[in-house]
C-alpha cells in the first residue's frame, strides 16, 4: 500500500508529480428497468496533491455520482480511476474499505450522522476501524472536533445540534483519520453564508497544511475560495479553470456582520 503523510505534499499543480486523482473517460449508467440513466458521460480529470478543487453544476449534473466514485464508494461503469497511481477497479472490497478508512475523508451530501450517538462517538467511528488504540482514537476525535470549533459540543446528540454544527461534526469525522484527500459533497448546503464561510476557512487552512480538497457546491460564492473550479453539466465537464486571487475566508469573516446583529 502506498502511504502518504501530509508533510511530504507539494504545491498546487506541480508538474511532473504523480496526480493523486487520475480519472480517464469515466462513465456511469444507472439501469432503471427499461430506461438507462447516463449520469456520467466520459469524465476525465487530473488532480494533483495539495489542490483545492470546487465542483459546480446544475442539480442532476452527476456531481454526487462522480464524488462517490472518487470516494471509492461506487464503481464507474466504464473508464479508469487511479488513486495515487493505484487502479481502483483492481482492488478487493477489503482494500477499498482500508482506503476509505485511511486515505479518504468523505463529507456526505446530507450529514449522515448516527442519530442516537453523540458528536464524539460519531467522529470516533472511522477510528474504530483504523488500527489505533481506543485512547488514541478518542484523542484524535477530540482534536478534530476542536478543529471545527465544536470542542464544547462533544456529548451532544445530532438532534441537539444545529444544521451547521452537524455539518461540522461530519467534517470532523472525515478528518479524524488524517486522510490525504478530503471529499466534501455540498458541505455548505443549507447553511447561512457566515457559517459557510467559516467552513471554507477550515478547508482553506487544511489545504494550507497540504490536504487535497475536492468539494461540490452550488454557490459560486463558495467556489471562489477554491484554487480550481470545475463545471459539470449533463455528466460532462464543461469548464475547468484555475481561480485567480481567491479570497481568504478568514479575512472575509472579519467583514461579515456577526450573527448577533
Amino acid at each position: 500500500m502506498v502511504t502518504t503523510s501530509q508533510t511530504e505534499t507539494t504545491n498546487t499543480g506541480m508538474k511532473g508529480a504523480q496526480p493523486v486523482i487520475l480519472v480517464q473517460e469515466v462513465h456511469k449508467y444507472y439501469e432503471l428497468g427499461e430506461t438507462r440513466v447516463h449520469a456520467l458521460r466520459g469524465v476525465s480529470i487530473e488532480i494533483a496533491r495539495g489542490e483545492f478543487v470546487a465542483i459546480m453544476g446544475a442539480s442532476g449534473g452527476g456531481k454526487s455520482t462522480f464524488m462517490n466514485i472518487l470516494g471509492c464508494l461506487d464503481k464507474p461503469s466504464a473508464g479508469r480511476y487511479l488513486l495515487e497511481g493505484i487502479e481502483v477497479s483492481s482492488l478487493s472490497i477489503k482494500e477499498l474499505a482500508t482506503i476509505r478508512n485511511h486515505k479518504l475523508g468523505f463529507v456526505f451530501q446530507g450529514f449522515n450522522l448516527l442519530s442516537r450517538t453523540t458528536a464524539l462517538e460519531n467522529v470516533e467511528l472511522p477510528t474504530l476501524y483504523a488500527r489505533i488504540s481506543k485512547a488514541e482514537g478518542e484523542k484524535r476525535s477530540r482534536e478534530a472536533l476542536a478543529l471545527v470549533g465544536l470542542a464544547d459540543r462533544i456529548s451532544h446528540f445530532p438532534s441537539q445540534l444545529s444544521g451547521g454544527q452537524q455539518q461540522r461534526v461530519a467534517i470532523a469525522r472525515a478528518l479524524v483519520n488524517r486522510p490525504s484527500i478530503l471529499l466534501a459533497d455540498e458541505p455548505t448546503g443549507n447553511l447561512d453564508s457566515r457559517t459557510s464561510v467559516e467552513i471554507m476557512d477550515i478547508f482553506q487552512k487544511l489545504n494550507d497544511d497540504g490536504l487535497t480538497v475536492v468539494l461540490v457546491t452550488h454557490e459560486p460564492d463558495i467556489a471562489q475560495y477554491a484554487k480550481r473550479g470545475i463545471q459539470f453539466r449533463d455528466g460532462k465537464i464543461r469548464r475547468d479553470e484555475r481561480t485567480e486571487n481567491q479570497p481568504r475566508a478568514s479575512e472575509v469573516i472579519k467583514h461579515l456582520p456577526s450573527l448577533e446583529d
Binding site: 478508512n101 449522515n112 448516527l114 472511522p126 483504523a130
Partner: peptide
C-alpha cells in the same frame, strides 16, 4: 441499513 452503509463508507470491512 444506512448505519451499515455509513460504517462501510468510513472504512468498516465486510468482516467488521
Amino acid at each position: 441499513t444506512r448505519e451499515i452503509g455509513l460504517r462501510m463508507a468510513v472504512g468498516a470491512t465486510e468482516g467488521d
